[in-house]
Amino acid sequence: MYIKKILLIIALLGMIAGGIFAYYVYQAVFSPNTSFETKTVTLYIPTGTTYTELIEVISPVVKDIYSFDRIARRKGYIDNIKAGRYIIQKEENNNQIINTLRSKNSPIHISFNNQERLENLAGRIAMQIEADSVSLLRAFKEESFLNEKDFSVETAIAMYIPNKYEFFWNTSAEQFRDRMFKEYNRFWNESRKSKAKKIGLTKNQVITIASIVQKETAKVDERPKVAGVYMNRYTNGWKLDADPTVIYAIKRHRNDWNTIIKRVLYKDLELDSPYNTYKYATLPPGPIAMPDISSIDAVLNYEKHEYYFFVADVENFGYHKFAKTLSQHNRNKKQYINWINKQGLRR
């Protein structure tokens, strides 16, 4: 009888201990363990993060880091940390948090446009993904890649078509570059390639002219007309005489890309640069900026007309006055010069 009582007491104590343990496990695994009041918190886990570093990253967003640590160890997460961008929901428990960190890398949307050089593009992308600008620029200029894909350092920026793209935050520089080449090929579908062939231009030449159109007018509806002027000049063997190419040549010559040039002077037209289309009848060696899709399509679908000249329209700012003859253009130009002189624009 006495032994039975002892066994019963031991059994009861075991049940109590088991209940306490089960309660503890339930609390550790399934009770909410977030410390923030917002609906979500986004965590960025860099490539190569150790478990110790992970704990430092997640400590500010959980209430009990010790229970998180115990569950992370039980689930084997400490040996399987994955870089990425993770969204933690308010009131999530340790089990949910760890499952998110293991398998729910959340993508981001990357956008870029109007970049003047690969250096500018690298800086812009580095603000949006893990890869830094140095590694991005190195990937952009990698000689073997450019040779294989039929690009040069001067034409490489043509490969990056401005748009909005979905990426994982922890995308490497090479992965970003390679994806952009795939997007470039997707952009140049059969219809666009057929149009380029029909007007006698390569893809790089289309984008080079488009970059000039982009710099000449911010008005999307005017771009096919401006493109028509440059195509008239180009197909008839004229020099393009494009001010934006001179501005680009000046910046390149000075290696000063931050300078702002509002007015091209006659002396600037003498600068000996392959980008100076007042001096050379050939197209520049590559784009002078990153044209957006509207400018590229404006060249592929340029307006057929007989205009060879245009100048800023001071009566309709943002647009231009077009002329078929030099005498007509000079009259339009005189009106423009009088206006800028009144503004005091010397450079």
Rank of each mutant, 00 (worst) to 15 (best):
I247W: 01
R233G: 07
W257F: 15
D243K: 04
N232I: 10
I247C: 02
N236W: 12
R252F: 07
T235D: 05
T259R: 13
T259F: 09
P244Y: 04
D243T: 06
K262F: 09
W257E: 03
N255M: 07
A242W: 03
G228P: 07
A227P: 07
V229L: 13
W238N: 06
R233H: 09
W257Q: 03
W257N: 04
D243E: 11
N232V: 10
R254L: 15
A227S: 13
A249W: 00
H253C: 09
Y230G: 02
I250M: 14
G228Y: 08
R252S: 12
Y234D: 03
Y248G: 00
D256K: 11
R254Q: 15
R252H: 13
D243R: 04
G237N: 05
A249V: 00
T259C: 05
A249I: 00
R233A: 06
G228L: 08
A227W: 11
A242K: 02
D256A: 13
P244F: 04
I260P: 04
A227R: 10
V229A: 11
G237R: 04
T259P: 02
D241N: 15
R252M: 10
D256T: 11
V229H: 12
P244M: 06
L240A: 09
T245H: 01
T245R: 00
M231A: 03
N258C: 08
I247L: 03
V229S: 10
I260C: 04
D241Y: 15
H253N: 15
T235P: 04
A242T: 05
G228C: 06
A227D: 10
M231S: 02
K262V: 05
T245C: 01
G237H: 05
I260M: 12
Y234V: 04
H253I: 06
N258A: 08
R254M: 14
L240W: 10
R233N: 07
L240Y: 09
G228I: 07
N255P: 04
D241M: 15
W238P: 06
T235K: 13
H253F: 14
P244T: 05
N232W: 11
I250C: 09
K251A: 03
P244W: 03
I261F: 07
A227E: 08
T259A: 13
I261D: 01
A249L: 03
D243A: 12
